[in-house]
């Protein structure tokens, strides 16, 4: 039932694959910056799903959701990178294990 003509399921499959790539990045990498990048990948995968459904259901609401996801993702990246900078100043490394030492 593989079809070459592109439909909704193609976009959903691509989105799921990108999301799993992001999950694996979060699981197997130790660098905090790369983990943040993987989270951005996951958010982008969800955005593809939103826009695909918005297009195929002919409804604008998905694109509005993408708008808000983008704003929150930018905010999350800014805060995560600021925390990474603070951790680097304290421990001279950004390995994720340094986050065990955060207190309060």
């Amino acid at each position: 039932m593989l079809e070459l003509e592109v439909g909704l399921s193609h976009y959903l499959v691509l989105s799921a694959a990108l999301f799993i790539v992001g999950i694996m990045g979060v699981l197997i990498r130790k660098n905090t910056i790369v983990i943040l990048m993987s989270i951005e990948l996951m958010l982008n995968a969800v955005n593809i799903t939103f826009v695909a459904f918005s297009r195929f259901l002919n409804n604008m609401d998905g694109q509005i959701s993408v708008f808000f996801v983008m704003a929150v993702a930018a905010a999350e990246a800014a805060i995560g990178l600021a925390i990474a900078v603070a951790v680097f100043k304290r421990f001279h490394g950004i390995n994720i294990r340094f986050f065990e030492n955060l207190k309060g």
Partner: peptide, 21 residues
């Protein structure tokens, strides 16, 4: 939210690093 993040990111990155430094 973006205003709060703007202030918070500067406050976080400007400190000495760690809360008990």
């Amino acid at each position: 939210l973006l205003l709060v993040v703007l202030v918070g990111a500067i406050a976080l990155a400007k400190g000495k690093g760690g809360t008990h430094a």
